[in-house]
C-alpha cells in the first residue's frame, strides 16, 4: 500500500510537485502520465526515499519515508524493483553481476544458484547468452531488459517502471509492453508505470493518474481518460497517442 498525501517538492525556485495526493492498493497496476519535466520521476524517487519531501508525506506499507530509519528504508527498498529511465546498469560490472548484485550483497553467495537465478530472470525478459557481457556492448532495448531483469531479481512486491518505452522504436516498445504484461501476470506485484506513451497506458494499466502543473489532474481508468472531454486531457492524448 502506497499513500501519498499533499506531497510538495521544489528545486530552488522551481515548484515541481505542489500537493500531490493519491494512494495505490496492493496488486494495482497504475500508469502515471504527464508532460516531460512535470515531475514524474521526482514523484517516483520520493516513493523509494531517494528524495525527501518539502512537506506532505509518503507512506509505504505503513512506514513514513521521511521519518523511517535508514535501515527501515533499505529493508523497504528490497521489496521494490525499480527500472530506471536510463536503465542505470552498473557499467563496471557484467550483466550477470548487475542482475544478482542485490542478492549477493544481501547474503546469497552460492555461485550456481545465482547463475541460475540470473539466467531465469534474463530469459523472462527474452534474453539469453549475454551474462558475461558488459552493458556498454548492449543496445538500448537490451539494456532496458537487463534493467528489468535486475529489478525482478529479488522477487519484489512493488515494481516501478520509469518510462520503459521512451527512446525505443515502436516494435521494441511493443515487445517491452508485452514483457511488462507477462511480468505483471507472473508476479502478483503492485505496478507503477511512468510513461507518456498512450499505447502502454491502454494496454497495461487499469488506472491512470495524469499529473499536470504539479497536481493530480485526472485519476481514473484508461477508458475514462480516453472519453474525457477536458481540453487539457484531450490535448495530451492527441499529442502522445501516436507511436
Amino acid at each position: 500500500m502506497i499513500e501519498i498525501n499533499e506531497l510538495r517538492k521544489s528545486f530552488d525556485a522551481q515548484q515541481v510537485l505542489r500537493g500531490v495526493s493519491f494512494s495505490i492498493a496492493d496488486g494495482e497496476t497504475v500508469a502515471i502520465i504527464g508532460q516531460s519535466g512535470c515531475g514524474k520521476s521526482v514523484l517516483l524517487k520520493h516513493i523509494i526515499g531517494l528524495l525527501q519531501p518539502d512537506s506532505g508525506s509518503v507512506v509505504v506499507d505503513g512506514h513514513n519515508i521521511a521519518t523511517a530509519s535508514e535501515e527501515q528504508i533499505y529493508a523497504l527498498r528490497r521489496k521494490i524493483g525499480f527500472l530506471f529511465q536510463s536503465a542505470a546498469l552498473f557499467d563496471s560490472m557484467t550483466v550477470f553481476e548487475n542482475i544478482v548484485l542485490g542478492l549477493w550483497e544481501h547474503g546469497e553467495r552460492e555461485e550456481a544458484k545465482l547463475r541460475h537465478i540470473a539466467e531465469e530472470k534474463l530469459s523472462m525478459v527474452g534474453l539469453r547468452g549475454i551474462l558475461d557481457q558488459k552493458p556498454a556492448s548492449l543496445s538500448g532495448g537490451m539494456r532496458k531488459r537487463v534493467g528489468l531483469a535486475r529489478a525482478l531479481a529479488m522477487n519484489p512486491k512493488y515494481l516501478f517502471y520509469d518510462e520503459p518505452t521512451t527512446g525505443l522504436d515502436p516494435v521494441t516498445s511493443d515487445q517491452i509492453d508485452d514483457l511488462i504484461l507477462s511480468v505483471t501476470k507472473q508476479y502478483q506485484a503492485t505496478n507503477l508505470i511512468i510513461t507518456h506513451d498512450m499505447f502502454t497506458v491502454q494496454r497495461i494499466a487499469k488506472r491512470v493518474i495524469f499529473l499536470s502543473n504539479g497536481l493530480v489532474y485526472f485519476d481514473g481508468t484508461p477508458q475514462e481518460l480516453e472519453n474525457s472531454i477536458d481540453p487539457i486531457v484531450q490535448q495530451f492524448i492527441e499529442r502522445f497517442g501516436k507511436r
Partner: peptide, 21 residues
C-alpha cells in the same frame, strides 16, 4: 559518472547503501 547516470540511485534502489558499498 555513477551519480549522473543514476547508478547511485540504482544502488539505493537495490537496498545497498552507497556509503557502505
Amino acid at each position: 559518472t555513477m551519480k549522473v547516470t543514476e547508478q547511485i540511485d540504482a544502488l539505493e534502489s537495490l537496498g545497498i547503501s552507497p556509503i557502505r558499498y
